[in-house]
Computed example of a mutant assay.
Amino acid sequence: MRPIHPSQRVAVLADSQNLYHAAHSLYSRNVDYTELLGAAVDDRNLVRAIAYVIRADSPSEEEFFDALRDIGFETKIKDIKTFADGSQKANWDLGMCLDAVTLAGKIDTFVLCSGDGDFARLCTHLRHEGVRTEVFGFGPSMAEELVEAADSVNDLSADEERYLL
């Protein structure tokens, strides 16, 4: 495990859907992305901050996307798909993994903002490549396999007044 130091190059990838659902199901509140990004970077050198979002045609989502950009996140937007049976799907997992692997040679630390256990294998892979992996998520909804795969875990629930609006 690499020590944390100010010259580390950091990439922050935020799974906005996962954070939204966790914050709403646990607290009925929204995530404070300004605080989240500040804590994730922690006075280190930010290489990229990407928020992965889903466009579902809700009234205030464009304002949310603009706010993320104003905070310092690059937004990657995927439209929700509606199938003939009425079911809907939108998922950024593969795109996030590809971006993380692509960035691995340019960073020292990968910060994943999600509690999704599907990213455990990504964290394990990045650690084997020499990249420190940090996870920020809401403890009660974080997958155990993700917690075990990361170098460090930051439970946003431990300071909900800081990380929630």
Rank of each mutant, 00 (worst) to 15 (best):
D99C: 03
S141L: 13
S7M: 13
A40D: 08
A84V: 03
V147E: 14
L13K: 04
P6G: 13
M96T: 06
C113P: 02
Y27A: 10
F73E: 08
V153L: 11
Q8T: 08
L165C: 11
D108E: 11
R2T: 15
R44L: 04
F119A: 05
A158G: 03
V12E: 10
L36N: 06
F136A: 03
E160G: 09
I71C: 10
R55Q: 09
D85K: 00
A14G: 07
V153R: 10
M142G: 00
P3R: 12
D116V: 06
K106C: 11
H5P: 02
R162T: 15
I54C: 00
A14W: 08
E129R: 15
A104I: 05
H5K: 14
D15C: 11
C113Y: 05
I54N: 00
A149N: 04
D57P: 00
Q8R: 12
I71K: 11
V41G: 01
G86R: 00
N18F: 03
D155M: 02
M1K: 13
Y33W: 15
I4A: 12
G38L: 05
P140C: 08
S60H: 14
D118V: 06
L122A: 06
D118I: 03
P3M: 10
D99E: 14
A149Y: 01
A49D: 09
E160V: 12
H21W: 10
L156A: 06
R162S: 10
Y20T: 06
D79N: 12
L146G: 02
F138S: 02
A143Y: 10
Y33N: 10
Y27G: 03
D42F: 05
R9S: 11
S87D: 00
D66E: 14
D32C: 07
Y33F: 15
E62D: 14
H125T: 14
A23E: 08
Y27E: 04
D151F: 03
V41F: 06
A56C: 06
D32W: 00
S87A: 00
F119I: 05
M142A: 12
N30T: 13
V10C: 07
G139V: 01
A56E: 11
S28T: 09
L37V: 06
G117A: 05
A51K: 04
V111I: 14
K81P: 00
L122T: 03
S58D: 13
D42I: 00
K76D: 12
N91W: 05
V111K: 11
A84H: 02
H125C: 14
D159R: 12
G72H: 09
V135K: 10
D116G: 06
V53G: 04
R132P: 07
A104G: 09
R44P: 10
Q17A: 09
L103W: 02
D32Y: 03
L126A: 06
R69F: 01
F136D: 02
L112I: 13
R48N: 08
G130H: 11
G130R: 08
T82M: 00
G139R: 10
R69A: 07
L19I: 11
A149W: 01
N18R: 08
D70Y: 09
E148K: 15
G139L: 03
F110G: 04
